[in-house]
C-alpha cells in the first residue's frame, strides 16, 4: 500500500471515528446560517402572504414574482435566485473564490476608482469572515482529536486543544492570508493576459482553453496554499513547534517533497467530494420539494451533503497528518546510543 493510499484510508478512518466532531462542526455551520435564514423566511412569508405566487413558489419557481422581489429587497436577500439551484450554488461559490471575493472581498479586483467591487453583500461577507476565524480557532482542537490514536473527542477536549494552539494557528492563518494576497496580486495580471489571449484567439475552443485554464490554475494554486497551511498546522500539533513561520516553511517544503502523494490524497478526496455533489444534483433534479414533509427530506439531504463535505475536510487533515507522521518521522534517522 503506498503511503498516499495509507494516508487516505487513515484520514477517512479518522473522520469516521470522529463523526460526532463532524456533526458538531455541522451544527455550528447550521447555526450560523440560520442567523439569516430565519429572517429571510420571515421576509418571504410576509411578501408571499395572500399572493398567488405563494403557490407557484411552493411548487416551483415563480420567475416574474422573484424578478420583482429581487429588485426591492435588502441587499443580502437579493442573493436568493435561480442560480442557487442544482449545482449552481457550487459554481457560484467557486466563482466568488476565484474572483478574490473571499474572505470579505479582501482580494477583489479594484475598479478604476480604486474601490473593490463586492459581488456579495457585506453582511454576508462579515458573517463568513467571523465564521472563518472561529474555524481557525477550532482547527487546533480538530487536529488534536485526529492526533489521538483512538480519535475520540469531547467538546471540552476540542476547546482545550483549540485554545492551546490558537495563537500559533492564528499566525499561520495570517501568513496564509498574506500568501493568498500575493497569489491574487500575481494572478490578476496573469488573468488579464490570459483573457487577452482568449480575446485574440481564432476559435472559441482555444479561447475556452485559456479561460478555463487560468481559472483552473488559480484554483490549483489556492488548493496548494490550503495544503501548505494544513501541513503547517499538522507540524505544529505533531512537533509542538512554536514558530508559525518556520512551520509554514516546513509545511511548504514537505508539500513539495511529497508532492505526488499530496496530489493523490487531494485528488482522491476531491473526487469523493465531487461524487457527493453529483449525487446531490441528481437528487435535486429528481425530487420535487413542496410541502413541509418533502422539505424535511430535502433539508436532511442538504445537511448530509454538508456533513460529507465537513468530514472530507477532517479526513483531508487526517490524511495529511498521517502522511507527515509516517514520512517525516520515519525519515529522521534514529541513533541508538549504547
Amino acid at each position: 500500500m503506498t503511503s498516499a493510499t495509507r494516508a487516505i484510508v487513515s484520514g477517512l478512518r479518522g473522520a469516521r471515528r470522529s463523526w460526532g466532531l463532524g456533526v458538531f462542526l455541522l451544527a455550528l455551520n447550521l447555526a450560523t446560517a440560520l442567523l439569516l435564514a430565519i429572517p429571510l423566511a420571515a421576509t418571504l412569508s410576509r411578501e408571499l402572504h395572500a399572493r398567488p405566487a405563494a403557490t407557484s413558489m411552493a411548487h416551483g419557481f415563480d420567475f416574474p414574482w422573484w424578478g420583482q422581489w429581487a429588485e426591492s429587497g435588502p441587499g443580502w436577500q437579493k442573493s436568493l435566485g435561480p442560480d442557487l439551484l442544482g449545482a449552481g450554488f457550487a459554481f457560484k461559490n467557486l466563482d466568488l473564490l476565484l474572483k478574490g471575493q473571499l474572505p470579505a472581498g479582501l482580494f477583489a479586483v479594484r475598479d478604476p476608482e480604486g474601490a473593490r467591487a463586492l459581488l456579495v453583500d457585506p453582511l454576508l461577507l462579515t458573517i463568513a469572515a467571523a465564521y472563518m476565524l472561529v474555524q481557525v480557532f477550532l482547527a487546533g482542537g480538530v487536529l488534536s482529536v485526529l492526533r489521538q490514536v483512538q480519535g475520540r473527542w469531547t467538546v471540552r477536549g476540542l476547546l482545550h486543544g483549540a485554545g492551546f494552539y490558537c495563537g500559533r494557528f492564528l499566525r499561520v492563518w495570517a501568513l496564509m492570508m498574506i500568501a493568498a494576497g500575493i497569489l491574487f496580486a500575481l494572478y490578476a495580471p496573469i488573468a488579464r493576459w490570459a483573457d487577452a489571449q482568449a480575446r485574440e484567439a481564432v476559435s472559441e475552443s482555444t479561447a475556452a482553453g485559456w479561460l478555463l485554464g487560468h481559472h483552473a490554475a488559480m484554483l490549483l494554486a489556492l488548493v496548494f496554499l490550503h495544503v501548505v497551511g494544513t501541513y503547517a498546522r499538522v507540524i505544529i500539533v505533531l512537533e509542538e513547534r512554536s514558530s508559525a513561520t518556520l512551520a509554514v516553511l516546513s509545511g511548504f517544503a514537505f508539500a513539495v517533497s511529497r508532492l505526488a502523494s499530496t496530489i493523490v490524497i487531494t485528488a482522491a478526496l476531491g473526487a469523493l467530494g465531487l461524487a457527493a455533489l453529483w449525487m446531490w444534483q441528481a437528487f435535486d433534479q429528481a425530487w420535487m420539494t413542496t410541502g413541509f414533509r418533502s422539505q424535511i427530506l430535502t433539508l436532511l439531504m442538504m445537511q448530509a451533503l454538508l456533513l460529507a463535505r465537513i468530514l472530507l475536510r477532517v479526513a483531508f487533515a487526517g490524511a495529511l497528518m498521517d502522511l507527515y507522521r509516517r514520512d517525516a518521522v520515519e525519515s529522521v534517522p534514529v541513533t541508538l546510543v549504547a
Binding site: 447550521l30 440560520l34 435564514a37 442573493s79 450554488f89 457560484k92 474572505p103 454576508l124 454538508l306
Partner: peptide, 12 residues
C-alpha cells in the same frame, strides 16, 4: 438560500 450560504461558510 441557507444551503448556499452554508457552503459559502464551509468554503471559508
Amino acid at each position: 438560500w441557507m444551503f448556499w450560504f452554508q457552503h459559502l461558510l464551509e468554503m471559508h
